[in-house]
């Protein structure tokens, strides 16, 4: 099963390679990874999409938590959350296809962010399903390249990741996975 994990980390050099090295060194896979600074400039937030059975997921969460540079780990999949991804699609655009492209962009509430004589670059934001859908619809029109950001995620409701129950305290029972938020 796929999981979206949010991780608060120290905003320092080398942190990304520690996290990436953890995944590669232990044979866990990363489908996507996003990282950027948070409101607090000393902290960065990572969103990692990964997959594995219960036992592997528990190891991933615990191993992440064990890193000294990791402040908090939350498996978003265990709670109610919103996720978004952004894609840039460069698609071939000629007189025949332009109206169709514009129509699709409109339906998907995307934007044309760059125009040339023979191409459009489109920006679309949404959850994974929506992103996949627009790519599939654009494909027959001639996609030249795409760039996806990977997912970012946030829990619904007023609580923040920082306020999420600390896994470190709950871990005595070993049932990390049941904790979520």
């Amino acid at each position: 099963m796929r999981h979206t994990i949010s991780v608060l980390v120290e905003n320092e050099f080398g942190v990304l390679s520690r996290v990436a090295g953890l995944f590669s060194g232990r044979g866990f896979n990363i489908e996507s990874l996003c990282v950027a600074e948070t409101l607090d400039p000393t902290v960065s937030r990572m969103t990692i999409v990964t997959s594995g059975n219960e036992q592997i997921m528990e190891q991933i969460l615990k191993q992440l938590n064990k890193l000294v540079c990791v402040i908090k780990v939350v498996d978003m999949t265990r709670s109610d959350y919103v996720e978004r991804e952004l894609v840039l699609i460069k698609v071939t655009a000629d007189e025949k296809t332009k109206p169709e492209i514009l129509r699709l962009v409109d339906i998907f509430r995307g934007k044309i962010v760059d125009v040339s004589a023979e191409s459009y670059t489109i920006e679309v934001t949404g959850d994974e399903g929506k992103i996949n859908a627009i790519i599939e619809l654009m494909r027959p029109l001639g996609i030249r390249e795409i760039a996806r950001t990977g997912k970012i995620a946030m829990t619904r409701g007023p609580r923040t990741l920082k306020e999420a129950k600390k896994i470190k305290q709950g871990v005595e029972n070993g049932d990390l996975l049941r904790q979520g938020l």
């Binding site: 190891q59 938590n65 064990k66 871990v171 005595e172 029972n173 070993g174």
Partner: peptide, 18 residues
């Protein structure tokens, strides 16, 4: 004392971290 040692190789019925 290391939670990652628990349930790494075998199933555990009662984990105690400490």
């Amino acid at each position: 004392i290391d939670p990652t040692s628990i349930k790494k190789n075998v199933k555990v019925d009662i984990p105690i971290v400490g």
